Simulated scan of single mutants.
Amino acid sequence: MHKIKISAVSYLNTKPFIYGLEQNEIINHIELFQDIPSVVASKLKSGKATIGLVPTAVIPQIPSAKIITDYCIGSDGPVTSVCIYSQVKMEEVEAIYLDYQSRTSVELTRILLKDHWKTNPQLVNAVYGYENKISDATAGLIIGDRSLQLKSSYKFCYDLGEAWKKLTGLPFVYACWVANEPLTEVFSASFNQALKNGIDRIPEVAKQNEFFYPGVDTFDYLMNKIKYPFTDLMRTGVDTFLAQMMTEETVFGNEPSFDVVESSLYK
């Protein structure tokens, strides 16, 4: 029997989704992989997976992309897991290492540096282990579980979800469930219901993961910081970010890598 290949993100914020899928009969009809965001995006673009929890910035680059569920990874203010860390104030930062795990956070950093913090530090593409190089006037963008667990290591923390909210008044969507080919209505409904079931069990999921995230309030993070429903306001946040991202690419002299998002992107 043909199984649909699904690439999910391997972070704490995705655990409710994973729980819902694994506890649902749909698990017998899928192959579920857990990857870092950049790998999820690569699999969807290459066709190695049919469904993925795709970083927002990459969605328009995926052939025939459709956002297929009522759920996402978002925040409406501070997110705590997408942050720039430094030992000096933002206005004193001279260089920033950019996390290699997700393009969305990198593009959001570019926008916020220009329009919110109004600074122009050198941006450096990071490699594994760059967290240890954050010192003096060199800062670092860190996302995901590492961001949650390294928070106490640095003097200053600049939360990108909070900064976006201050800049635009909108929530921010970090990733959406996207398919690169048509799905049956029955499968789509079952997949969406499985995700909902996981979200409904967040207290249980948070409790299960406490041991693996020492020092992290898993309940507060999953219940209060991460916003899962993909509401109309979340869609406005997506459209605003993608349009702004295209503008930034034009400003920096690059050809835009996508067209402004169209309504056909949505299910």
Rank of each mutant, 00 (worst) to 15 (best):
K89F: 13
I142H: 03
S152Y: 00
I62W: 03
L123D: 10
Y71Q: 07
A139F: 01
A139C: 05
I111M: 15
S86Y: 03
D76V: 07
M90E: 08
A139K: 00
Q61V: 06
S75L: 02
L98N: 05
Q87T: 06
P60S: 04
T69P: 08
I73M: 15
K66D: 05
R103P: 01
I68F: 14
Y85L: 07
A126S: 12
G74P: 04
H116S: 15
L112W: 13
A139I: 02
A137N: 14
T138N: 04
V124R: 07
L98V: 13
Q87I: 04
V58I: 03
G129H: 06
S135C: 01
N120Y: 09
K89M: 09
N125T: 11
Y130H: 08
A95K: 02
T119V: 15
Q101L: 15
Q101G: 04
V82K: 06
P60T: 10
V127N: 07
I84H: 02
Y100P: 01
N125S: 15
P121W: 06
T104G: 05
I84F: 09
K151P: 00
A126W: 09
R146Y: 08
V106Q: 06
K118L: 14
I143P: 00
A95I: 02
N132F: 08
E131R: 10
T104Y: 09
V93L: 06
C72K: 07
T80L: 06
T80C: 03
A126K: 03
K114M: 09
R103S: 15
L112A: 13
L98I: 13
E92S: 12
V88S: 09
K66S: 15
G144A: 11
V127P: 00
P121G: 07
P60Q: 11
R110L: 12
V58Y: 00
D70K: 12
Y71G: 11
K66P: 06
P60H: 12
Y100Q: 08
Q87R: 11
S64Q: 15
Y128H: 13
Y130R: 09
S147T: 01
I73S: 13
N125E: 15
